[in-house]
Amino acid sequence: ESFRLTAGGPQSASLPWIGVIQTLVIPESNRRLAAAGSEHEIVWREAFGGSLYKWQNSLEAVEIGLTDIGWVGALWETSKMPLQNVTYYTPFVTDDLLLLLDLFNDLHESMPALAQAWHEQNQILLGASGVDTYHLMTTFPVTTIDDLEGRKILAPGPSATWLEGTGAVAVNGGLSTYYTQLSTGVADGVLTILSGAYPYRIHEVAPYITLVGIGAQFNGGLAINKETWERLPPDVQATFAELGRDYSRTMGETVVARYEQALAAVQEEGATVVTLADDEKRRWINGLPDIAGRWVAAAERRGHPAGELLRAYMAAVRERGVEPLRDWDRAE
């Protein structure tokens, strides 16, 4: 018996969280089903690159079943999925993406509220996705935090809060607009991920790269429409559940590899890379207001157990041997 499934993504397959669906999930699903002697087969229809739906609608597209399986950007769903945004409100916790993805896949199993958030959107998370740690790319050299005073730094969404206390002005934008905004001087710098910034040639217009390490981020994941899921026989469900974990690992490894390549390539292509001095980084961290506390208060007012998640998340990080640079769960 064959099942017709659509796999979709709102962005180009050159991005790891989309590309791994194409290179791993689609071919492996049928290979593993066949290897296990299953009589079920999937007939895939691929729709990547935003031709089926745009990034603003990645959650809804899976919810309504426009695509059966798709990458969902939870980072854009601050209203519907606040819990899945926790890392954006806890900067400077860890730069280890693989650890983070594994941790969130586990948390989705141990903390019912997390899985429930996806069910409420008529879908199921198969595997978490994320991005490498955030750094600073600027049109001017940065040695101390004071260099940022009054500068316009591109930091859309929750990342704007990471600039609080630095004296920089947060400016709105997106990966596709950064180059123009920086080259024309609308902005003087950007808080961004190297793996994403390199293909967009951001280092050409913002050649001063300061390795800050604001943290890797959990940004959503591979999700499947709940009705589609319930229609699938148990062996296909098991294959997808297993593929979900593999998706996370392969995606994480791809991002890390891209990060390393980008870091080497930008230097070869003339960008200046320096690591922010420890005491300056400490100043930045200490200057931040209680971002996590504000987020917990706002999310709990709307009935989401954000405080419980924050404590579970920070505990899980420490359990894995990482000492967060700021203890967001122990607000002074």
Partner: peptide, 16 residues
């Protein structure tokens, strides 16, 4: 019903 918004709490939010 769910007071859905766009934006980021603490920076700006707009009801949808």
């Amino acid at each position: 019903r769910t007071s859905e918004f766009t934006g980021v709490e603490g920076i700006y939010t707009l009801p949808i």
